[in-house]
Computed example of a mutant assay.
Amino acid sequence: MPTDDDRAGGAPEGRPEERLERAVRAAEQALIEFEIAVETFRVEVDNFSRLHHQRLGPMYSRLDELDALIAEAKAARSGDPEDQRRAREARELVMPMPGVDELFHGWMDSDGLSPEADAMLTDRPVRPPRKVRPSEEARRLYRELARAAHPDLAREEGERKRREEFITRVNAAYARGDEAVLRELAAEWAAGPAPQPPELTPAEELYARLEWLARRKELLTAVAGELEESAIGAMLRMAPDDPDRLLEEIAEQLLAQVAEREAELAALAAG
């Protein structure tokens, strides 16, 4: 009987489908690793986007307001129709004040006002936004669970559905960076039904499987491209190892711009 080494050296294989089966298994594992990488980056983009909005959103709004005030002051002074048009356009860019429902959307919990809303109404300092970035341990647990329970490894529809539901919970816990829940899910998976070994399939089904994997990879490649080309994705690529420092640098730049606009507005008012 030929050994694996014999086969690697070009000896005849035991079954015609054996090489194709190995190719399918390799493609499955490669796709899972790629999907893990895409999901990891998606979580990073989502978390950085949330922090970016929480930390820098008020500064952008202040800049828009100052630009509108400056344009309006210039238009009032000159009376020029072109200046008035610029003033109207600048004012349209300013975000309108939210209504009460919008203002408190997401700020209510089962006990009433959330701590953030209560702090604002009582003039206490609002706690900074919670940083949600999965730790190295959370990343390790997520990768292990994704490799073990990935739906693409299922050969039967019921098993695929079970895996999809489980991976949805894994993704949610990973997005929160919740190590404790990830450990619980790892224990749950280990105690659950063992995955059934793949049955011997005809060559036609193996080819169809390879084609499906190729299409899935194309879809994931498109998703990854959209993430990388997004504004937040581009920012993350600028500082992949220290995104917090990038936020600090952008905040410093915005504060300097706010100071410049306020000085310009003060000069217009004084003139």
Rank of each mutant, 00 (worst) to 15 (best):
G99E: 06
A87I: 00
K131S: 11
A75E: 03
H105S: 13
G79T: 05
S114A: 12
V132P: 02
G99L: 07
P81G: 03
E82M: 10
R88K: 15
D109A: 04
R88E: 14
F104P: 00
D80T: 00
V126P: 01
E102M: 00
P58C: 11
E44A: 15
V94M: 07
D118F: 14
R62M: 12
H53Y: 10
S49N: 14
Y60V: 14
R88W: 07
T122K: 09
L93G: 09
P128F: 08
A90W: 01
A76S: 14
R130T: 07
W107R: 09
P128T: 07
P125T: 08
S78D: 01
L66T: 02
A75Q: 02
L121T: 00
L121G: 02
M95I: 13
G112L: 08
F104K: 04
R62W: 06
R86I: 07
S61I: 10
L103E: 04
M108R: 08
E89L: 15
A71R: 06
S114N: 05
D118T: 15
R62S: 11
G57Y: 04
R88T: 07
W107I: 00
R62N: 09
R77L: 13
S78Y: 00
A73C: 02
G106Q: 03
M59I: 08
L66Q: 11
D101L: 14
A119M: 10
A75V: 04
V94P: 01
D80F: 00
R62F: 05
Q54E: 15
R77Q: 12
A117W: 02
D101N: 12
D83Y: 01
A87C: 03
T122N: 10
